[in-house]
Design a protein around this nucleic acid. Sequence first.
DNA 1: TCTCCTTGATTACAATAGTAGTCAATGTGA
DNA 2: TCACATTGACTACTATTGTAATCAAGGAGA
Lengths: 126, 126
Amino acid sequence: MRKAIPKIAESEWRVMQVLWEHGPQTANDVVTALSGAVKWKPRTIKTLISRLVKKGAVKVTEEGYRYRYSAAVDESACIGSETSSFVRRVYQGAMKPALAAFLEDADLSPEEIDDIQQILDQKRKG
Amino acid sequence: MRKAIPKIAESEWRVMQVLWEHGPQTANDVVTALSGAVKWKPRTIKTLISRLVKKGAVKVTEEGYRYRYSAAVDESACIGSETSSFVRRVYQGAMKPALAAFLEDADLSPEEIDDIQQILDQKRKG
DNA sequence: TCTCCTTGATTACAATAGTAGTCAATGTGA
DNA sequence: TCACATTGACTACTATTGTAATCAAGGAGA
């Protein structure tokens, strides 16, 4: 039974992505990983981490006298939850129009088109 | 030169969708249209409308001594803006993985799959 | 051992969002 | 004409988010 996915705010996503990608990190590792990508002060990033901990999206392990953070929620579950909230909000839950709009807008290379084709073929069969 | 799309909050989307779908309405028309769909008090809906007016997403026409509201921003522009913000946040801007995930998750009928196929074919040619 | 630096905890503060109540103006029916 | 009802304007209040400063505890170097 999976735990409920807490709502992750825009800025918090950046932090989660670092944790998903690099696994357990100290707060400073996260700051380093994000430096360049964002213009936040280290303190700000610490705050985001704390909030994520409070929400249950990130878990803490004490390591000596320092903490180490790692994602407590599954990345694809979060993506799925965010996606369905988006489709609900913008397309009133209608997946197909959403997909169609996405596809029409997307600027895809021929290879990417083929990838999508494969998934589509899979769906047809499955 | 298109006007910038104001950020439309979750609840406000419901209001915008009514205005896009039914054109100019009085506040009460919107309330009626939404009743059943949401559990908000009429006052709440009025507030949402006012906020949208202030943001410039909705425009007002005086009609006698009553107001009539209509969308001031284009629906597809809003959808586009919301979509790219979503893809940026969740997929770090990578459209193709977003599409792939969407497609894999979607529960599509054979007809819908064919529709998507057509769009895909179009893309390949175009 | 004692001071300093690092780092987590606490606090801050404005903007936006969700949800709604009160007030005031203005037609309207009796 | 006058109380009433309708409706927009203003006000309210909490939670969340973005962005960060200050405080305090506990190693670490002098």
